[in-house]
């Protein structure tokens, strides 16, 4: 099988095959992908661990107002410095990261559940359910996401649920589109005909053939949604519309830090921002590797 596919007729495909022969995609990129996955997963692991452990070790310092210690630059005692209320920024930033990640994870799970459900139903049923759901999706997409988020959050000020709902509502559409496209191509395959002929109901086909086949894509889009959700939450909180101000989140901290920046307190902005960027890069690295893995592979076909 595989060898036959490698032997391509047209010249363009020969070139491609020649690259395969040179070994780049298999050996080199495989190693690079593993490295990328390792670095991404390691980085994310360290960040998540720190976000859990640090606020747990010093539970008070996050909210502890210590007016003898205001606006201190980074030092051995306060590695990220302190803010205008004398709160330790190291603990506070990591506590903020914990909140942000938790909110983002809930949103990612919510978005892929809703997106997969809508995409699978629309793609599998086709006809009018498909048209109605897709027009709904277009309607959501037609409004700028942040604006829609702001409207939802503004209606229910300061509620955690409102933030989560606003992110889910604006992020499920991508997942739904990906899943629908996948389902559309799957449901015309002869193996679906074979299942129908074997007496399977549509629900059975959806559960046993279609959903397992799109699970990989859906999981991938969850990882892709994660950094988006972090940024979305940060943006809402930065605008003062997100999480309640007493809850430390990256967005709230950056919002407070705005005024400090003018007073020379660079550390108020720098450390939370760096953590935000690192989190994004780590998840993006994992997502990219997972996407490559989803490309159908032919490794074992050579055993024919």
């Amino acid at each position: 099988m595989a060898e036959r596919e490698i032997v391509a007729g047209a010249i363009g495909q020969w070139r491609q095959a020649a690259r395969t022969r040179a070994g780049t995609p298999r050996g080199g990129a495989g190693g690079r992908a593993r490295l990328r996955l390792g670095v991404g997963a390691g980085l994310l692991g360290v960040l998540v661990l720190a976000a859990i452990v640090v606020p747990w070790l010093w539970p008070a310092s996050e909210q502890l107002f210590d007016y003898t210690q205001v606006r201190l630059p980074p030092s051995g005692e306060h590695v990220f410095g302190t803010d205008q209320a004398g709160r330790d920024l190291f603990v506070r930033t990591l506590a903020g990261l914990r909140v942000s990640l938790l909110v983002a994870a809930i949103c990612a799970v919510g978005a892929i559940t809703l997106g997969t459900a809508v995409g699978a139903v629309a793609g599998f049923l086709g006809g009018w359910p498909d048209r109605v759901l897709m027009r709904l999706l277009d309607t959501v997409n037609a409004v700028p996401h942040l604006l829609l988020g702001i409207v939802i959050v503004a209606l229910y000020r300061g509620s955690l649920t409102a933030v989560i709902v606003s992110i889910v509502v604006t992020h499920w559409t991508t997942v739904a589109r990906i899943v629908r496209a996948e389902v559309l191509s799957l449901r015309r395959r002869p193996f679906v005909d074979a299942a129908i002929s074997g007496g399977a109901t549509r629900g059975h086909i959806l559960r046993r053939h279609i959903l397992p086949a799109v699970a990989g894509q859906a999981a991938l889009s969850a990882v892709l949604v994660l950094p988006h959700a972090v940024w979305h939450e940060t943006a809402l909180s930065f605008l003062g519309l997100g999480l309640p101000p007493h809850l430390a989140s990256i967005g709230n901290i950056l919002s407070d830090a705005r005024s400090e920046l003018l007073l020379g307190g660079w550390w108020n902005v720098a450390f939370p921002s760096v953590l935000l960027v690192l989190t994004t890069l780590a998840t993006a690295g994992i997502a990219a590797t997972l996407r490559d893995r989803l490309v159908p592979r032919r490794r074992s076909e050579l055993a024919l």
Partner: peptide
């Protein structure tokens, strides 16, 4: 039984 077995199985 279909023509192309490879397409006819999950």
């Amino acid at each position: 039984v279909f023509q192309q077995p490879r397409l006819a199985v999950d």
